[in-house]
């Protein structure tokens, strides 16, 4: 049996008094497109941020590509990894943020080449041609020298996707990638994500776009109050939900 790309075991995370994740366990398989749905505060974004360690878990463990994230087991205790090692682990994932977070003082092309040249130490010429190819893939080859302020929201998000892909991650994390976009711009971003899914990239997408989930997701996970309530094939969870809470959520959203 192949190993899951991401193995989450009994992960809990609190922010002060508030428990964002309550002993969550989940597997994500290579090539799988997983959509996480739920109300705000359900823990879906927190779970994503725990995988690329923008948030540190309080207890439990997350393995990515067989490697335990953030800590090292030694003498029966868990020791935190150094900042450098965590940075190295982050290279295996790419994240696309709700608010794009492009670097405003760099052009679209520079945003994409920044990671490979600065972090991975690769030569600029090599990286530049790859970056242009990525821009072409997301449909923005003509905007290579534009600054983020000169791009629309949808264009910025597509550049952000290219930026994440430039690091050649094995897992792409999307945190509500279209929530901050004007409705007419959502489609162009979803199109890029669909193409990415088709190309075989493992994706975890936190989203409210149920149409996208229905069309592209291999698995839909519904979370509420820090726990997974129901998960399964898109048609099952979205079409014939079994749990009451799932039903309630879906009827409120649709």
């Amino acid at each position: 049996m192949t190993k899951p790309l991401v193995a989450i075991r009994s992960v809990s995370k609190s922010f002060g008094e508030f428990q964002a994740l309550k002993a969550v366990s989940l597997d994500v398989w290579p090539g799988e497109v997983m959509c996480l749905i739920g109300a705000s505060g359900s823990g879906k974004t927190t779970l994503l941020r725990c995988i690329n360690q923008l948030a540190m878990i309080d207890s439990g463990g997350i393995w990515l590509d067989g490697e335990l994230l953030g800590v090292r087991e030694q003498g029966g205790k868990l020791h935190r990894l150094s900042e450098r090692e965590i940075g190295r682990q982050r290279l295996k994932t790419g994240m696309v943020f709700q608010r794009f977070n492009l670097f405003p003082h760099k052009t679209a092309l520079e945003n994409i080449t920044e990671g490979p040249t600065q972090v991975q130490g690769r030569k600029l010429d090599e990286v530049r041609s790859e970056a242009l190819e990525l821009l072409r893939r997301v449909g923005l080859a003509a905007k290579a020298d534009s600054y983020p302020a000169q791009l629309s929201g949808g264009q910025q998000q597509r550049v952000a996707i290219a930026r994440a892909l430039a690091m050649k991650p094995m897992l792409m994390l999307f945190d509500e990638p279209t929530s901050a976009l004007d409705p007419e711009l959502v489609g162009e971003v979803l199109a890029v994500m669909k193409e990415l899914a088709k190309s075989g990239m493992t994706m975890m997408v936190v989203t409210h776009e149920l149409g996208f989930a229905r069309e592209v997701a291999d698995r839909v996970v519904y979370m509420d109050q820090g726990a997974i309530v129901e998960q399964g094939r898109a048609s099952d969870v979205l079409g014939t939900p079994r749990e009451e809470r799932t039903k309630a959520f879906l009827s409120a959203v649709i």
Partner: peptide, 23 residues
């Protein structure tokens, strides 16, 4: 500077000091 900038830099593998310096 919006904290999202710092997070985006970390997400592409930058350490704290490099993120401060470059971004």
């Amino acid at each position: 500077v919006d904290i999202g900038q710092y997070e985006a830099a970390q997400a592409i593998g930058m350490g704290r000091l490099r993120a401060l310096r470059r971004i």
